[in-house]
């Protein structure tokens, strides 16, 4: 009963692309309401800080003015937030409420394909959100361009890191309200303790190791170095951290979430 046609099911790259394509189509369907806020948010942030707070902060931070320091940090927090929301609330709604995955898993996709497609999509959103911040920062002359163009690529990897972590959390969550704990207990502290708003060298010595453990610190350090054009050998460690984090957490996230989809 075998025939050749059956071996023509799409190859891996095509299957991953099709998942990514689905998410892109749904996201770009409401391009105005989905595409505008990523530009507005950094604008608001910089306006608030630039017009008010920055006047009081005259000390330079790691050789940057405060607005430059904060701006380079925001490149990464925007990627962090979008990937985290996408793969917590977004994934949970697609899985449990809209049952979108049930429809997709009837097509020639494995659960692994679907989850990895999800991760790549979250990375893409990280890229786009970083890019939006970059546009705003460039308009205000906070970042000089050729160097800043690398930031969205780091945003992509930041998106991957936070999506694998979010998916791992999602694999445990039974009701959607539990995500509040994740955001209050993990994502919000990340904003303050990973060198976005102030240098981690200013943290008390006993907290600093903690800052080195959390993922955002490494993306922010890389981004700042890239934007300032100051490269050190220890940036390799940050890159290594990011790659190991994505692989290890991603492995467990895929493994656990698969059990929620195929049981």
């Amino acid at each position: 009963m075998k025939d050749n046609r059956s071996y023509l099911y799409p190859p891996l790259a095509s299957r991953l692309f099709s998942v990514w394509f689905r998410h892109t189509r749904v996201y770009t369907k409401n391009i105005f309401s989905n595409g505008l806020p990523p530009f507005l948010e950094p604008l608001l942030f910089l306006a608030g800080v630039g017009l008010g707070l920055a006047k009081y902060i005259t000390q330079s931070m790691e050789g940057l003015t405060y607005i430059e320091f904060l701006g380079t940090g925001l490149l990464m927090t925007s990627a962090m937030f979008t990937a985290s929301f996408e793969c917590t609330f977004g994934t949970f709604i697609r899985m449990e409420f809209e049952k979108v995955y049930d429809g997709m898993l009837a097509a020639p996709l494995t659960a692994n394909n679907l989850i990895i497609g999800e991760i790549i999509w979250a990375g893409t959103k990280g890229f786009f959100f970083s890019f939006a911040v970059l546009c705003v920062l460039t308009c205000f002359g906070i970042i000089s361009l050729p160097r800043g163009l690398l930031a969205p690529f780091i945003g992509f990897f930041t998106g991957l890191m936070f999506s694998v972590m979010a998916l791992l959390v999602t694999s445990f969550v039974r009701t959607i309200n539990h995500f509040n704990f994740y955001f209050t207990g993990f994502i919000s502290p990340m904003f303050f303790f990973s060198g976005v708003v102030f240098p981690i060298s200013n943290l008390p010595a006993y907290i600093r190791p903690f800052a080195e453990i959390i993922p955002l610190t490494h993306s922010v350090r890389l981004t700042r170095a890239v934007c300032a054009g100051q490269y050190h050998w220890y940036l390799l460690l940050d890159m290594l951290y990011i790659i190991v984090f994505i692989s290890v957490v991603g492995f467990f996230a895929v493994k656990r979430l698969k059990k929620r989809l195929v049981f």
């Binding site: 799409p10 095509s14 692309f17 689905r22 189509r25 997709m104 097509a107 020639p108």
Partner: peptide, 8 residues
Amino acid sequence: MVYSRFYA
């Protein structure tokens, strides 16, 4: 159209 992509 989205679904047709799944079959490439």
